[in-house]
Structures are given as C-alpha cells and as structure tokens.
Design a protein around this nucleic acid. Sequence first.
RNA 1: GGGCGGUUAGCUCAGUUGGCUAGAGCGCUGCGUUGACAUCGCAGAGGUCACUGGUUCAAGUCCAGUAUCGCCCACCA
Length: 926
Amino acid sequence: MTTEFDLSRFDQLSGAYDASLVEDPIYAFWEDNGWFRPTEGADSDAEPFTVIMPPPNVTGVLHLGHAVTLTIEDALIRWHRMLGEPTLWLPGLDHAGIATQSVVEQQLAREGLTRHDLGRESFEERVWDWVGLTRPRITAQARRMGASCDWERTAFTLDPTPRAAVRRTFVDLFTDGKIYRGARIINWDPQMLTALSDVEVEYQEEEGKLWHVRYPFVDERGRELDDGVVIATTRPETIPADVAIAVHPDDQRWQPHLGRRVRLPLRGFERLIPLIADSGVDPKFGTGALKITPGHDQLDFEIGERHGLEPIRVVDWDGSLTVEAGLYAGMDRDEARVLVAQHLDEDGYLVQTETHLHNVGHSQRSGVVVEPLVSNQWFVDTDDLAAEAVRVVREGEVRIVPERSTSVYLQWMDNIRPWCISRQLWWGHRIPAWYCRVCDADAIISGEEGQITIDEGAHPIVELEDPTICPTCGGADLVQDPDVLDTWFSSGLWTHSTLGWPNAAGEPANDLARFYPSSVMETGYDILFFWVARMIMLGCYNMGAAPFRTVYLHGLVRDAQGRKMSKSLDNVIDPLEKADQYGMDALRFTLATGSTPGNDMRLTDERLEGSRNFANKLWNGARFVLGELAQSTETQSTGVMGELADASALEDRWILSRTQAVTETVDELWRGFQLGEAGRQIQDFIWGEFFDWYVEASKVRLRSGDGSPLPVLTHVLDCSLRLLHPWMPFVTEAIWQQLRPHLGQAADADALIGARYPQPGDRERDLAAEGAFAAVQEIVTAVRQVRADYRVQAGQWVETYVVPQTSMISDVEASSAIIEVLARARPLKIVAERSQAPHDQIASAVLPLAEIVLPLGGLVDLAQERTRLGKDLDNVLKRLRGAEAKLANAGFRAKAPANVVQQAEALAEELQRQRDDLASRLASLD
RNA sequence: GGGCGGUUAGCUCAGUUGGCUAGAGCGCUGCGUUGACAUCGCAGAGGUCACUGGUUCAAGUCCAGUAUCGCCCACCA
C-alpha cells in the first residue's frame, strides 16, 4: 500500500454530495493500490471466492443488463473481500460472432459494401479494427461502474487460451462421437445467411392465413378425379416441395385411401405423391391431413425420414424460391405465397381460407422470419452432456437462485435436441476440420470468389494440431471447413478457458486448481439456456466437475411503463447517462435494491432520485460527524474509538445494539443472496435510526459537554460505511478516507474496500436498552404529535409532563435531556404519578409505557381532546378485543409456543392499562 | 398444449422456516429556513394483502381452485 488518498480534494466539497468529483479518483486509488487482485489482503489458506464475469459482447456499449450484473457481482465480491477471503473477479469480453458480424456488416452496408466485396481476410481485419475501438470503451464503462475486478486477467474469447480450449473441446467431442456433421433440417436466417440453433429462434404470435387446399386423387391412368384430400397449410408456396400427404394411422376417414396418390394442385406440376400414415399427424387439427414438406418443416422432415422420402428444397438460402418452384422460381417466399394461393383459388383447389393465429420463428439477431431447411451442418449430440448437467443440478452440486428456475432448467435439459454449432459466418472460431481435396473431391464444391461449400459425405480431419497431410491418401492438398462455431460454444467454455484450460503439458494449472469451480455465476435469466446450460454441460465434460456452485439469475430491467427496452421503442436507458445524472452509487443502489432475484424491475427517475438522496444524506450525516471530530479536543492518536467501552448512556447502548442487530440481519440476508433486502435494511438503519434518532440525540451531549457521544458516533458511522460499501462503494470510501484518521486502532486497512465487514459476533445485543429507548422514542413522537395536533409553533418550548410506568422511570429520567430537546419539551417534568401532573386545560396522550400531559392553556379545545382520546380508545379497545379473543382460545394456549402466549398476555395487560387510563382521562374531561 | 411468475397504500415495490398494530420510497395533507443535509426535518391521511374454499390455536405467508396480467417452452401444419 503506497498511494495515500489525497484528502485535500474534499476541501472543496460541501453541502450536496457531488459524485462526479469523487468517483474517478476513488477508483484510481483502489486500482493503483492493487485492491482488485485476488490475493491482496487475503488469508491464503481460505477457500477463494470466485466470480467469472459474463463477458459483454465487444459490439456496442454497456446496457442496463450489464449494469445489473456488474452491480451484483461487485457487491458480492466486495462483501467477500471484506470478509477477508481471497477473491477473484475475472473480467472478459466475448467476440459475439453473429452479433458483431451483423454490426460490422451494417456499417459496410452504409458504405455500399458487403463482406464479399472485402473478402474474408479483409473483413476479419475490419472487425478487429472495430473491436479495437469498442474493447477499451467497454472496459472503461465497467470501471466507471466501480467494478473491482482483476483487470490484469481480462480475457477475450479469441485469445490464445480460449482458442486452444475451443480446439481441444471440439476435438474431444468429435473423437467421442458427440460432434458430427450431417444434412439435417436447421433454422436458417435468410438475411445473415447462416444456420441458427434452436434457441436463437424467437417465436412471435402472428395472424396468418390457413389455406385449405384440395389435392385431387388420380385414377390408374393418372387422370384427375373429382375427390381428393383437403389439407390445411400456412405455407402454400412450399407445395412444390411436397412429397406426400400424411394422416394419422388411426384416422378412420382415410383408412380406405391409404397408399393412393394425389396430384400437386399447382400450375405446372403433374407430380403425384402418396397418401401415407404417420402417428405424428394430429387428426384433430385442420382437416386431419398434413402435406409433407421435409425440406422446410421440422416435423415433416422427421416424417419424411421415417418413410424414406427425400426432401426437396424450394426455398433458397436468401428466401427466394428455387428452380424447383417452376414458374414461381425466383420470387420471394412471401410474394409467392400470395400468388400460389391466388392460383389455387382460380384453379378450384382452394376450398377455404381462414385467418389463423400461429407462432412464427424469427431470427434473434436479424429479426427476419427463419426458414427451416435442410443443410449440411455440424452438431453436438447433447444427450449425454445434458444427462450430467441434469445430475449436478438435481443433486445440488449446482444451486440455482431463485430456486424456481431450477425446474425451468431441468425441463429444458430434458427436452434438449442436438445443438447446431456451425455458422456460415466469418467472425468467430473457425471450425477445426479439414478435408482432402483429392479424397473428398466430389464433396468439395467451389463457389464464387474462392468460397467453398462442403457437401454431405465428406470426411473431416479433426486433430489438435492443424493437419498438413491427408491420413488416407497422404496428399497435402487440404482445405479447412469454411464455417465458424456458434459463439456460445466458446462462451460455454468460459468458466475454465479463462483460468488457463487447457494447460499445456508441464505448465502449472494453479489457477484452475485454485479457482475452478467458481463460486457464483451471476447473469440474467434470459440467457439460462444459451449460456448457463452450455457452461454446465461443457464444464462437466471438460473438467469433470460443474463450473460453479451457485447460479444467481437476475431479472430484466424495464422502463417506467414496464416495457422491455428496445431500440425500436426508443426507450433504452443508458446506465452511464443515469450515472452522470444521479451518481454511480445511486444507480447501483437502485439496481441492487430494486428487485428480488429472478424478478424484473422498472427503472424510474423517481427511484434514482431516492437513491441519490440517500447518498447525499449519508454524505451530510458523515459531514456532521467529521465536523464534530475535527473540533473535538479528544486525542487522535488512539482514535476516539478507544473510549467506546465507556459508552453507557441509554442512546449509546441503544444504537450500538441496533448496529449489531442490522449487522446480524444483513449477514443472514447476504447468505441467502437477498442483496436487495439487505441494502434496504441498511438504508433504513442509517437513515431512520442512526441519523434521525441517534445523531439528533447526540447533539444534546455535544452541546452540554456532559460526556462525549463522539466514540459512538464514529463507530456507528464506521460500521454503516462498512455495511453499505458493497452497494455504494464510492461515497462510502470517500467518507471513510476522511474518517480513517479518527479511527485509531479500529482502522484495520488503508481503504474501506479492504476493511473488515461487521460480523454477527462482534457485540452482544442489549435488548434492555433497545426496549427502553423505544419507549423514549414513543414519548418523543407522542409529544410531537400532540403539538402538531394543536398547531403549536414548531420552535416553541412547551411545558411537558411525562408519567412513565414505574419500571421505566429511571430510563426516562436518564433520557430527559434528549426528550426535552427532541420534543421541544421545556420545562420537562417527569413525575411518578398521574396526579402530580395538571388536569385542566391540558392535552394528553396515553402510551403503553407512559402517559404525557401538555398544559396548553387556551389552546386546548375540549371537544378536540375528546375526539383525539376517543380515537385512541377505540383503537385500543379493538386491539384488546383481538388479544383477549386469542387468549380465550383454548387451542392457542395449548398449542402456541410459550413465548408467543406470553407476549399475547403481556400485550393484553398493557392494553387494559391503556384502556383504563384513557377512560379516566376522558371521564375527567366532562 | 405444458411450465413459471405477478396481483399488497394513488404509483413503484419489499415482506424466505405461518406469530406483536402489514412496511418503504414517491405522491398527497399540515407544520417547519433549530449552525450535517430543503437532494432536508416533524406530524398525518391512505391497504377487506385479486377472489373462493381448505389446513392451522394462528394465513399476506401453506394447500386446492378461479379470475386477470405477463413471461418461458412446445413439431398443431
């Protein structure tokens, strides 16, 4: 620790907290002093707390989702760091294959270019240039968020080690037979011109048309008959690719006709197709008959496979129709749909048209309607991987927060299908497969501009090192597979590729051994399938152990109207802009306390304002304490904290016990991952108890000089800053740097970021003090209330009598100075008997532990007094009835725990006394 | 078609082993420029905890069902 924090910078600060003057210097101070490194200030024997950061896409800028992630992870890391555990928060970035390529292609389009104009190599260079711009911007933004991650370990999915991890995993899975290549029906994005995986397709309900089309039977000589089979379809343009009509085998309507042939009812087509039976057909939908188009429908493809029917491709890669479409060839699929329907109608084959609500798949990235089509792609057979990924969750090796997400995860895993991992893109990890131009000459098709496609039946050579000769023929004319991998393939390895896996022979695997598996994986629930599921599958496969112990899923941040943020709605909130406006701590606190795990939250300016106000309140409360410390003559060599043990005033004992109480609560909430509730509890404590009560009470002794509250003020401020630091790191550190010189031995670090977090065992609770001070609070509040009711001038001192219950007398007397000041009650007379207080021209209130009397003279209005007391009495009576009914219940006495019964009895007794006092008070008014 | 979540004050939301009078912020009403803070203080109004039934001594909390809004998954063309 070398860099001292320059306190002089705070000289200019006063009044309102100005985050913009504080945040950057504080961050630099932490980073320069090495606080983000994992071993600093930590006990090396302890188990490390590790978080691998979800890598933001190198595309674009940080959005609110990142802000939530960084806030929560930073809070967790800071908490564990303050617990003295070795902590590692490993940051990184994702090359984000399709997303980044899409952005760069859009840039090119604005220049009137396509990636083909540049060629593969130049295009990749162009993307690297772009990444060179966005990378530093993104990390700078994360720094602004206050992320205390270990920047020295920043990883990128295209770095050498992650590349090696991809290679190794691909080779292992291929060798295991879990990766294979083949012609299957996949989801095709006709704009990006690439295959997609199932999860990259988003279904939207849309109103379409359901056309009922008659396929006529033909006689033996092929002549068309009047009857036929009516099917219902949403895609008449795919009729040229029909290979059969299928019905359910048990469907009685069609039994006699099975095996007969029908003719394609489309102009220019004479093709006959069979009527077949398959149990995949739902006899209740539409007409109960289904046209089978294996080339463009998942279900049809499967039915086709079962019946040995070859798919026909009628929709081309770009969404236009192929030559197979006859006179419709070259038309766009939507255009053709309309025309085909029109022709069917004109030719008398269109039986009926109805509107139809159905789900249409769109590409997650480009938004265009996905075309299912048959294509040669690489797949991961996920069955075994999923089985293990299910096991580790079922058996609790991985815990998902919130727990309910576990069933979502398991359900998805149970229904998992082969994962299409090849993409016809240029940006990403090139598939490490080669083909021999000689042996696979028939399968290698060279297209324009040196592009090639690899047909089915080619023999890929997949090895750890780039192959140079064909193992079959010994030739050296090899060509690499042109495709790249799904970006989530490399993301799925993130948990260990960032820690040095696969470590080369002889290379130490320290990081892996020490930090794998990580402690918490924190991310949005929207990428549970994309990412979390894949990380668990691949982590288990490569490492033989699940990649993390806990998955913490946060919800989506929505706008003030509860809408999802989107560019098209133009309602995207920029986190940095909000931070400029309200301060980063305010943004963080709002995001962290705004929701519970897995639930969405709305971000509004009102909430941000509230958090900003809290930061400001803390700043000013601290300013008060610091100001008093500066004026105090007390020694600073040992710090004022040395005298903490002398704190014997009731309010001291009370706030120390309350500090301990909130410490215990917060500790428990932390352990249950209830960060939001913990933050709220701390805010309530600091504002509602420490500042509103203790600081106000402390002023009495500061002025009288009758024993100093400074040790307690200092200690509780110190604890408050420590407790709050994970949520609001900047303002707490800024204050703590000013407080530290006053802490003496209690200053256990040079920076709050490395100070010790308050612990449940730090101090005994003092329940007697808590109870007694609660009575003082009640008395003060009641006096204020009476004064407000009678519109007594706020600044005016009023003679006030307090008649405490006998048991309370000494505590109330001890706190008389506080009551006097906080309630503006002077002279304050504490008397043992009600009879010692005046009875005429008074306003009064009856509390559980005391009665108060204010002789307000002419201000007192008997009618108003009757109303006030009557209302109180009604309330007491109502509660008393409830309490007595409960006690009269034999079951309650018999079955409720003893302490609950006891409490109920005490309450009833207290209420009876209040009732009697109120009644006699009322009687005396007459 | 399955699965999940929400429904608590005018608004936005807390309330996790069932147990004192259900809380907060914002908004609203009244008072207030007391030397930390008007980004503030004090006091107040405001809720049959969506509905129905059940379990229990006791239900906002557990169970069943209903309504309604939302999300996810799914090969009904």
